[in-house]
Design a protein around this nucleic acid. Structure first.
Length: 269
DNA sequence: AACGGAACCTGAAAGC
DNA sequence: TGCTTTCAGGTTCCGT
């Protein structure tokens, strides 16, 4: 599932392909990726002829800066950008395509998304959802003192709290699950009960977990862990019932706020 | 205000 | 074999 590392992978891909390029053709194959009030025609008009100045990311949001206006892209659960030739046939589950030209070279940036949780939004200013994001662990680091102070006011257990994008932008179910294992913290603990020392360990684990995942994502294509044939590169995420990598006791799978969590009841306290 | 839970989606895997 | 059920989950919305 796309979380911060996968979105950063997409950012780098799009930056290489599109920065400095001019969008010459836009196709929206499925309007359900758009804001429902916006007509596909309006999106095509807004993007056509625009020059891409930068491809940025905050949390799980991509922000493509144009010479006039902005394009926001969220990958949802199954969204993916791939780069190909302008006239390549549609990729599987393709929902939108930007054909752009840079120094007489034409490229296609294709957005595919089988489950349609992704977003494709043209705007003239930052979206509320973007403005409301908390610090990005990769850009800003994780300030443990600040995090500790924020957690002190939270009522939820630490695991669901970590999924709040206003707390830290980009942490999803996978990174939260693995980071709690790395920091040896029980996901059921009350957020406000974590000591400063524990929050320090958690802050470091979040950054380490993200950097580790990013290192695994080399090359030009990316595979998400849920896709058929993909292996699971994560430490405990998706490994309920398997032996704990540290102590070999069976990892426990529970559901919190509707999300699966895996942890070791011996190593995580 | 804060929180839980459902809804939005559909492909793949598991169950029967 | 083929049908049905379950699961995955980021975000938004709604009800409590």
């Amino acid at each position: 599932m796309p979380e911060l590392p996968e979105v950063e992978f997409a950012r780098r891909l799009l930056e290489r392909a599109l920065k400095g390029a001019t969008i010459e053709r836009v196709a929206i194959e499925d309007a359900r990726i758009l804001d429902q009030r916006v007509k596909p025609r309006a999106v095509i008009t807004a993007l056509s002829g625009r020059r891409v100045q930068a491809v940025e990311r905050r949390g799980k949001w991509l922000r493509i800066v144009l010479d006039r206006g902005l394009l926001f892209s969220h990958l949802g659960m199954t969204g993916k950008w791939t780069i190909g030739k302008a006239d390549d046939p549609p990729v599987r589950f393709e929902k939108a395509r930007l054909v752009a030209t840079k120094r007489a070279r034409r490229v296609a940036a294709c957005f595919s998304d089988p489950r349609l949780f992704g977003r494709f939004v043209v705007a003239s200013e930052d979206l509320d959802a973007y403005r409301e994001l908390g610090p990005d662990p990769l850009h800003d680091g994780v300030d443990a003192d600040r995090l500790h102070a924020k957690l002190a006011r939270r009522k939820l257990p630490i695991k669901p709290t970590l999924l709040d994008q206003a707390l830290l932008a980009g942490v999803g179910n996978i990174q939260a699950t693995d980071a709690l294992f790395m920091a040896r913290i029980d996901p059921r603990r009350a957020s406000s009960a974590l000591s400063r020392r524990e929050v320090g360990a958690l802050a470091r684990a979040i950054v380490r977990s993200i950097e580790r995942t990013l290192e695994l994502e080399q090359g030009d294509t990316i595979q998400y862990v849920e896709e058929p044939g993909a292996d699971n590169p994560f430490i405990v995420y998706g490994r309920g019932g398997d032996p704990c990598p540290k102590c070999k006791r069976a990892l426990v799978r529970i559901v919190q706020a509707g999300r699966a969590t895996v942890f070791c009841s011996r190593c995580q306290r």
